[in-house]
Design a protein around this nucleic acid. Structure first.
Lengths: 205, 205
DNA sequence: ATCTTTTTGTTTAATAATTAACGAATTAAT
DNA sequence: ATTAATTCGTTAATTATTAAACAAAAAGAT
């Protein structure tokens, strides 16, 4: 559903920031490619598709490309996110410091037992009933679902009705949502199972 | 790197188990497809490629397909996994109950400060220096990296040298590893950024 | 027993994604 | 100023993935 090229653009950005911090001003498709683990042609093609241009012989100006990627990804404004489920994963993500510097902000957590979130936490916690209210008030478009399997679809429905347009789902179910809502799944178990399969297969060779 | 069809097989398995628990004995490609969000042709093709066969007109026998998928994924034996990094994500995953019923077992956690893991936890924690020892002793092939960005490559190297063949990486860096080691990345930030991009794009339409 | 309906399984077609190829531009050197 | 060496950017070719089409098999109805 989500195009691969935009996923790589996001990776390029991460990598370019690192190179910039290291003091570099320019970078070649070859260097970036090696760092990300793709071919230089892939980098040039991706850049080309998003109209990110470099200088022949002199490569790409890091700051320039970063500016354009930031604009592409709307990095200029802060993106508010809500989190449903305050179990292990939910709490771990709420404590994660990395969102802020990427201009993403977790504005609220939701759980049938909102007290799960300690009072000293900067982020307020509510019952899932309050999702519509918060979404409307804070103009939230992105939600994370980290509730148990059985509750996931229900929470999804609430989010969709509230106006959420993108969902990152950690529950091991495929959520049903209207086509204008994008659902992206993360399943640690499935990833591990896939890893187990391929490593076993590699061994057989 | 990891083929899409095997990833779907893992999803089908999850879904088949659910249907079995609901009391069903048979299932049609159409039903399964709808549940996973793919076309029935895709299901049949995937099944065909892994020699999972059904009955024309009577669909697929759930138990039969599950048995074969389990064999394919080596679900008969327990797969040991180690976890590097006992921060928010690391601890959350260690507390996760879902691994056991999928025949996966987290055998040890590692951190430069192993005391991060409470004593009452069933899983022992060590300094990363001990990775080779544990990997050898327990015959571990899969490792999870949930350490900060700066330490990720170093931990990766230790794991690779110790004989780990598959790595699930939560750190926001692309790890360099030999071609016989499979690295799979999970980046919550990147997924969110991609979601933000596509939802914005959908809005423009 | 034959016909109809349904659903699989394979083959063929279409689309998407990646890789390769190569001309054009830019810099540096002679 | 001309030549050589790089590196981008686009077009073409390949490969991978998904969708469509349809024959064959099985079940049920007549």
């Amino acid at each position: 559903m989500i195009k691969k090229n935009i996923q790589r653009i996001i990776q390029y950005r991460m990598c370019l920031l690192r190179f910039q911090n290291l003091g570099f001003e320019r970078i070649f498709s070859y260097t970036l490619a090696q760092e990300i683990g793709v071919s230089p042609e892939q980098v040039r093609k991706d850049f080309s598709q998003f109209h990110l241009r470099g200088n022949k012989k002199a490569g790409y100006l890091i700051q320039d490309i970063l500016d354009q990627i930031n604009e592409l990804l709307h990095k200029e404004d802060i993106h508010k996110i809500i989190m449903a489920g305050l179990g292990n994963i939910g709490k771990a993500l709420i404590q994660y410091k990395g969102f802020a510097k990427r201009n993403m902000q977790l504005v609220a957590g939701f759980d049938i037992n909102p007290a799960k979130l300690k009072k000293n936490c900067r982020i307020p916690a509510f019952h899932p009933d309050k999702i519509p209210e918060v979404v409307k008030k804070e103009q939230v478009r992105i939600g994370i679902i980290a509730v148990p399997e059985q509750a996931a679809q229900e929470v999804c429905n609430i989010m969709v009705d509230a106006g959420i347009k993108g969902i990152l789902n950690f529950a091991p179910v495929i959520l049903k949502a209207p086509s204008d809502v994008v659902v992206q799944n993360i399943s640690v178990c499935a990833e591990l199972e896939a890893l187990i399969y391929v490593t076993r297969k590699n061994e057989e060779k």
